[in-house]
Design a protein around this nucleic acid. Structure first.
Ligand code: MN
Ligand code: MN
Ligand code: MN
Ligand code: MN
Lengths: 219, 219
DNA sequence: ATTAATTTTTAGACATGCCTAAAAATACTA
DNA sequence: TAGTATTTTTAGGCATGTCTAAAAATTAAT
């Protein structure tokens, strides 16, 4: 139906729209897709012609409902495949993104339905990101950043804000994973580092840079 | 590494080489890939440049070891994905080929290793075709066509020579599937149709056209 | 309000992969 | 063996998606 390239552009614009609620600039898209502004302008015009986004010269773009649906469907496929790779094939959460970038473009609605069922209709991917439903509904994350939580408030680690391989491997190293229960014992006023008490009674110290990229759910 | 198109050409040439042991003609490739001879000539020259096949003008092509390896790896991926779709996602054997045509181009050696392990290192795909090993070894089918088997010789249905959706659905309809034990009770000398006695004691009649597309293993 | 800096678009080109039509080579046939 | 039919290659072109360099529009700064 749509080419890999078209899906990737729509997904990128969707991702950028989640933060900025204004229209998205050519350069922002070029940055995210690691391509040139001229290429983005070319593609934008094609997508506008197909009514996948609204485009006014020099004014940036905005997805139409149609374009948003294609983007959300692609996100759904990406995240379901990530669950498959982690849960079934035993990949680490730091290894799955690049493979899912390929798998998300496989075109078969029936395949995704059956994969969804096989995985037990998961609500979140291995990084804690919500999986859109078959109908294209996606609830926005109900999680909060660990560095904004009050001391002694018990929380469950539920997602990450930084999806980089380095960050995920760092969390593996210090023993933090989704589902870990913990609370902040102490916050260092000088550098913002936190002393975390894990469910296992063990305490660890994490830097502010780590804390502000961890999403938790208060319990 | 190699484009979808390149992999598809190499796979097609490999498939044609299995029957004809001579070099493969431009037209044969065009027929199989549903494209034009001129397009085949174009692609052939590129593949020859990359040392994936040996090409002499007007003399047809032959895969090099390198090209054969790419083809066999693609076949391996295709068949493993077909096993996944049937065994895990509960697709019918008539539904999996087109999806596997897409999945076979996903590029990750680790993914295929892990998929292979997840599936229990299957030796054959849902149509009875052998799955090449990680090293690129593939044993040629040890099965024989049902219409060449002597009467009363017990056999197990083990593969199909016709992979079309229509044929596979016909087998579903008459209750024949891989693993079915049977023997030929009677062969009709006039039209070559067979009376098959199934393990369930039930007897069915199948036409010669069906019989000559069923692969069996004598027991 | 001009000028300067930045962003965005256009112009022109290139790579991949496909096509049709025509030319060249090979294979078949009388 | 000449002549015809078939196969294969070449020539030229088109669509997609990319790029660099230059022009145009917008934004920021004096
Ligand atoms: Mn991802
Ligand atoms: Mn993810
Ligand atoms: Mn197949
Ligand atoms: Mn098969």
């Amino acid at each position: 139906m749509y080419s890999f390239t078209e899906e990737n552009y729509l997904k990128a614009i969707y991702k950028l729209s989640e933060n900025n609620r204004q229209s998205i600039s050519t350069n922002a898209i070029a940055d995210l897709l690691q391509t040139k502004a001229a290429s983005v302008t070319d593609m934008i015009r094609k997508l506008a012609e197909k009514k996948l986004l609204k485009y006014e010269k020099y004014k940036g773009v905005e997805l139409t409902e149609k374009g948003k649906r294609v983007a959300v469907d692609t996100v759904r496929k990406h995240r379901l495949w990530e669950v498959f790779l982690c849960d079934k094939l035993k990949f680490g959460w730091d290894e799955v993104h690049d493979i899912a970038e390929q798998l998300e473009h496989i075109n078969s609605a029936l395949l995704i339905d059956k994969l969804d069922a096989f995985l037990g209709y998961p609500s979140h991917d291995p990084h804690g990101d919500p999986i859109p439903t078959k109908n294209g509904d996606i609830k926005k994350s109900e999680f909060v950043l660990l560095n904004t939580v009050k001391a002694l408030q018990p929380v469950i680690m539920s997602g990450v804000a930084d999806h980089s391989v380095l960050f995920l491997q760092h969390l593996d190293k210090i023993g933090l994973r989704l589902g870990t229960s913990c609370l902040i014992e102490e916050m260092n006023a000088y550098d913002g580092s936190l002393k975390l008490k894990l469910n296992s009674k063990q305490s660890i110290s994490i830097s502010k840079d780590v804390a502000k990229n961890i999403l938790v759910k208060p319990v």
